[in-house]
Design a protein around this nucleic acid. Structure first.
Lengths: 330, 330
DNA sequence: CTGTTAGCGCCTTCAG
DNA sequence: CTGAAGGCGCTAACAG
């Protein structure tokens, strides 16, 4: 039997033997705060490199209790919004030697809870993207585990959100500046935290007489398609959609009806997805995703290390003006 | 000190104590092939449920050497193609009690290798989505670790690919049936395995005189936009794009030039992405993604368990006819 | 500053 | 069929 495990990987024992020191010395030399002589550390590092040593996470976790990994709960990876969150979280985590377990819950609150229960033991904490689902149940399943909410607030838990109210305000001001008065909003599902926030902001920014409220829709793109006719009938000259997919649905149906965008109708999306610029150059409110995910990772790790108060972060949103909005023609 | 670890989780010791049996009995009862009396197993399972027991993966891994997790290498999670692969892999893995570590390599071959080296020790094997990158280097970094390639063949390794040649053939036949003769192909990067395959199939399916080859392009959407004018100048009446994003770029520029799609130009995409149907109802060759990922997971686990010969799978592709292709007008 | 000694939670011989 | 014992690779007191 050789002194190496399968896959040709060596352990601290190999390094210790190679150098004629004890394994604990090696362990300390390899630990950031370890108290060893500079010379020893140098030799250990040299040997580690030479022997292609790589720490066994399982062993480390077992002994320290820290798994060096975090769980990411997302409703649907196919949605570019969440794909970017996943990308950001994963990259940031890797840069600080953590891995992320992604659980795609397929837009089911059931699976969401199940995934949390399943992974709880194998991660140090959670990043939760769960726009839907009941507050109480969610809090209950998260009890006893560190967690930070992304794009949703949940009392008592740290969160990273974006300034949706400002985003809506920017959109409304943009439309007002273009001369539009009667403005519609196609609302997202009431069960969504973000949809409620956008809608509330819209109610605040547009005065009663000018305000047209449509929706709520369920499926984004098809919901947009299905709402376009009501939009035309409403007399609004501009619309702010719940998100970019809804906006694309609206644009598709409007054009099919022979209504030009932006000349016949100004359309503002929300999220700032790349796909929204692909075939349709959509004016949209950009919502940070990778940055949000990175911040969430940092927040979580800080909470784990220092155990401070749950801090929350609100990231700015930014209106991106493209070709789907134009001055009101009279 | 209580008998439970943090996060309120119990161990097999708790179950053993609760039942007055030994930990090894509990361990066996909880192991599929374990040899215990049916009665004992029943009691153990009851207690496990009652005490909310959940096995500690780190401990299990340390003792068995199996990590119960697999690494997924993808170039970019933002690309809906890979997001779906990730989703499929993750869901299938979870259903067989495995987790997947996703490494987004940000389209860098460097990061690809780095990620493999980094994770090698913490996973049982890899699922590799690496269309780019050198064969030899990739094989070298994968040496000694189980791996299955997705959407790329690499001699000596099992793979899950799709029948790109058939997809191209279907597209060409469709266009021929519509009366088109002069057909163009906008090729993807030569460094991409899939791009080379599509192009070779195109060369085979379209006779020399009728064939127009454009590209290769680098950035998909912008590449499509940039190639549209050459397409028009080529005299082709139909085009098969490297992928859907390229097709969308083409359509965007064509329309800007005042050329109607499909009346002035028939456009076929490749991949069958949802985004392609959003604003543009694009005819496209659907390439399986979630299914491919699921198969890859199965292949990997089977190889790990049985260590058989590296089997490979080729999944079918299917032309989806929508509104971007029409009969040739003469 | 370094070596020795105990585990972390689980699986796996080996006896009984 | 079940219990006792040892070890997976690493970290964390505790002595020296």
């Amino acid at each position: 039997m050789t002194s190496r495990t399968k896959a040709g990987r060596s352990t601290i024992h190999d390094i210790a033997a190679d150098l004629g020191v004890s394994v604990s010395t090696v362990s300390r030399a390899l630990t950031p705060g370890g108290t060893v002589s500079p010379e020893t550390r140098r030799r250990v590092e040299e040997a580690a490199g030479r022997l292609d040593y790589r720490a066994n996470r399982a062993a480390r976790s077992l002994s320290t209790g820290r798994m060096h990994s975090i769980g990411l709960i997302v409703p649907d990876l196919r949605d570019p919004f969440f794909a970017e969150v996943a990308k950001g979280a994963q990259m940031r985590a890797r840069s600080v030697d953590h891995t992320v377990y992604i659980a795609d819950t397929d837009r089911s609150a059931e699976l969401e809870f199940e995934a949390i229960d399943m992974m709880r033991r194998d991660v140090d904490g959670f990043l939760v993207c769960a726009p839907l689902g009941d507050d109480e149940a969610l809090r209950e399943h998260l009890r006893g585990t560190a967690a930070v909410m992304i794009h949703r607030e949940l009392a008592g838990l740290p969160s990273v959100t974006s300034d949706l109210a400002s985003g809506i305000a920017q959109a409304v001001q943009h439309l007002h500046a273009l001369g539009h008065r009667r403005i519609a909003h196609v609302a997202g599902p009431d069960s969504s935290w973000g949809a409620r926030r956008r809608r509330a902001a819209f109610d605040r920014e547009v005065s009663d007489g000018d305000r047209v409220l449509l929706g709520p829709i369920a499926d984004p793109f098809e919901g947009g398609v299905a709402t376009a006719d009501a939009l035309l009938a409403s007399g609004a000259t501009a619309v702010i959609a719940y998100n970019d997919l809804v906006a694309l649905g609206l644009v598709t149906r409007l054009r099919a009806r022979g209504v030009s965008v932006p000349d016949g109708m100004s359309v503002v999306g929300f999220d700032g997805l790349d796909v929204a610029t692909l075939a349709t150059s959509l004016t949209s409110v950009a919502v940070p995703r990778q940055v949000a995910a990175r911040s969430a990772v940092d927040l979580l790790l800080r909470a784990l290390d220092e155990g401070g108060e749950p801090a929350s972060v609100v990231l700015p949103t930014q209106l991106i003006v493209r070709d789907s909005t134009a001055p009101l023609r009279r």
